[in-house]
Amino acid sequence: MLPDYLYIIFFLLLGVGFVGSALVVSWFLRPRAPSQAKSSPYECGEIIKGDSRVQFNVRYYLFALIFVIFDVEILFTMPWAIVFRQLGITAYFEMAAFILILAAGLFYAWKKGALEWQ
């Protein structure tokens, strides 16, 4: 029996090979006719104004922060979910308390307006 990770590494190499070979094959086949106008970034045919890397809306960071909290929470819940039938009712209430604290945090963020886009 081969180890599980060997399969994952093999599929990783396969994926890289798939994309890489597609790019290499097209590198041999495709035409090359570069020009100044062609290589300007697309902006509906207008002459581009300013830098493309504009300032982000700060909202994106807020959502990212809330996401990190919930993602870690789900990772903590995953092992509990697998064994909680054996652990019985005590484990259920412990996890319920954990989830309710998080839900209270979500409610706080909601009331603070962190979930509003504008």
Binding site: S26, W27, R30, R32, A33, S39, S40, P41, Y42, S52
Partner: peptide, 12 residues
């Protein structure tokens, strides 16, 4: 068609 298309990279 996509294989035979030019690969354009914009400036910057």
């Amino acid at each position: 068609k996509l294989l035979l298309k030019e690969d354009i990279a914009p400036q910057g």
